[in-house]
């Protein structure tokens, strides 16, 4: 009997292990560069929520970017630091509700950490590479982003507008002369 209990305990532990103990923290680059290695494993992944949450029945699609712009967008003064890079994740509406600010031109989105099962080619979502979220928390709330016009550009605009007017005057004069 004791043996049976031990076996059961070990069995349950083994089932739980991947979700609890082996939730390795990964980057989107790691996942994309070696999908076979991570396929079916439980991973923890963090990134900036961008765009929107797309709700379809019990599934909500979120896109989390873990690129250089997690720190801040170009409009916030971040220098161009490469492409965006991220991972599409599927959560339940209840979990996804925690994410409220999504990154776009006017926002730096919530930084979200998710744990879930990574699928290199998810059979449930017709082969998409995704991550089925089991837990989600917002590490850092998103912020609004200002993009005020800068004075240097306004001066440049004044100059080029003047040049365009001069060109138009010359064009109109030549045409009138013909």
């Amino acid at each position: 009997m004791r043996r049976f209990i031990t076996a059961c305990t070990l069995g349950i532990a083994a089932l739980l292990m991947p979700t609890i103990a082996w939730a390795t923290t990964v980057s989107s680059t790691q996942l994309i560069e070696d999908p076979a290695l991570w396929d079916g494993r439980t991973v923890t992944f963090a990134g900036e929520a961008v765009g929107e949450a797309m709700t379809r029945g019990d599934d909500v699609w979120l896109h989390l970017n873990d690129d250089a712009y997690v720190v801040g967008t170009i409009e916030q003064g971040m220098p161009p630091s490469g492409y965006n890079s991220g991972q599409a994740v599927v959560a339940t509406p209840e979990l996804a509700a925690a994410v409220t600010v999504f990154g776009d031109h006017r926002h730096h989105g919530d930084i979200v950490e998710v744990t879930g099962v990574f699928n290199a080619a998810c059979p449930e979502h017709s082969g998409d590479m995704d991550l089925h979220v089991t837990s989600l928390r917002v590490l850092q709330p998103g912020t609004a982003v200002e993009d005020p016009p800068d004075a240097g550009k306004l001066t440049l605009l004044a100059t080029t507008a003047l040049a365009a007017m001069v060109a138009y005057a010359a064009f109109a004069l030549r045409r009138a002369a013909d």
């Binding site: 605009l157 365009a164 060109a167 010359a170 004069l173």
Partner: peptide, 14 residues
């Protein structure tokens, strides 16, 4: 836009 017009109209005038 203004640079394009300056160049485009300028070329047509010249």
């Amino acid at each position: 836009l203004t640079v394009c017009l300056a160049v485009g109209l300028g070329l047509q005038a010249l």
